[in-house]
Design a protein around this nucleic acid. Structure first.
Lengths: 226, 226
DNA sequence: CACCATGTGAAGACAGCGTGAACTGAGGGT
DNA sequence: ACCCTCAGTTCACGCTGTCTTCACATGGTG
């Protein structure tokens, strides 16, 4: 995903925290000139402009961004409560606003709705580890860009392992966490699924799943800390 | 000015206070039936639906209001902070939202901005995905230029899927989002409608809807980028 | 070398899904 | 009032792919 344009530079820590938490990449710019200099080839995904410290500069930037050949969309401004009346005369300069202090979830929800409105769709929930990518919304997986055709249990197992990279799981734990608590089956079932996963990962990447003898299986590299 | 439609009946006092303070006339309705009975000849100016006490009823009303011949616009929902994640799959049911508790000024600013926006006519009336085209105004659909003769439920199902391309939906989700919350029917109904949709898409394009075994159905291809 | 854990191949059991067909209820026309 | 049509729903059946299990082979370890 292309990054969001943030203002000012450096951006408010609460804003950075909310965006990082929600997983949106971003770049900050303090001036319109910096914004165009830093702009990716594919353009900005959108902009979040904080207007509570320097309203003048903030709205000036909004105007500039809107007057481009390809007006920047979507554009969200952060304002303090006392600035709300100021928005009335600047309707055309933003697509949505958020009153600070705000919850991280509210900003995330507003961005999601904005992206949906402007037709760019929502950002898929991804699980990534090295060459592996799992798209949780579309139930699709890919290794090094090549799509993997996984069955349901294979996908669930890989998802669980990939969301806990480096950690070793016994077969019993995997059965209870992936298959379900009430599952009563042989532990060797896990082996077979691991085998098929490795086969589909191809010899090139099968080392992503390693066997820990007498214990269980691990995805990715071992972690010495924690 | 025409009144705003409020939900529930009686509406939350804080909402009434904010609207009265801002000078917006309003009428409250507790059901969709009451809403249509109380509707002025010139139609509602918009709606403010409070979802923090009775989310089910609130979103059911939103859905009804949007499915009218002339969808009610603009529609603003009030939600509690913990409900923010629930908004994700209901993007199309509202134009803006406000997190309660809210300042009177924020609600006023949001309504102003909404009225300005809807005056600009920003609502997309076309849904396109590859060879598929849906005209939301005329309830017409076409695949590769050839018109499709779809029934109501077929159209609604296809519309929902096509507005979330790539995403996989369980039958239960589809039943609740396309058929409605109060629907209590067998999940296999979805299968049959999917089948007829595929048939009407003709073998040439039936791959647009793919089955994800043990999960549900997906429209269109994966979205790795964006 | 012996033993135990894991990899491998194959086969049966099972569940999910597609399919055809029947049923229901709402309109619409005669 | 009657029949007809059609959209929507439900059901039963059979196929197919997936999961599970087992037996055996392989390999690491003391």
């Amino acid at each position: 995903m292309e990054p969001l344009l943030l203002y000012p530079d450096p951006p408010p820590p609460v804003l950075v925290q909310a965006l990082d938490l929600a997983g949106y990449p971003w770049k900050a710019a303090g001036t319109a000139e910096a914004a165009s200099r830093l702009e990716p080839d594919e353009g900005w995904a959108g902009a979040v402009v904080s207007a509570d410290v320097d309203p003048e500069g903030a709205f000036a930037l909004c105007r500039t961004l809107r007057k481009r050949d390809l007006p920047l969309e979507p554009l969200l401004v952060l304002v303090a409560g006392h600035q709300l009346p100021d928005l009335e005369l600047r309707e055309d300069m933003f697509d949505d606003f958020c009153v600070s202090p705000f919850q991280d979830r509210e900003l995330e929800a507003r961005l999601k709705h904005l992206f949906w409105r402007t037709g760019q769709g929502t950002r898929p929930e991804l699980v990534e580890y090295g060459p592996l990518m799992l798209n949780l919304e579309t139930y699709q997986a890919a290794i090094a860009g090549r799509p993997l055709d996984l069955t349901y249990m294979e996908y669930e197992l890989l998802k669980f392992l990939a969301t806990h990279p480096g950690k070793v799981f016994t077969r019993e734990i995997l059965l209870s966490r992936v298959w379900g608590y009430e599952y009563y089956g042989g532990a060797r079932t896990v082996d077979v699924h691991i085998r098929r996963l490795r086969a589909k990962l191809s010899t090139e990447h099968e080392h992503l799943i390693s066997t820990v003898r007498s214990v269980g299986y691990r995805f990715g590299q071992s972690r010495w800390g924690l």
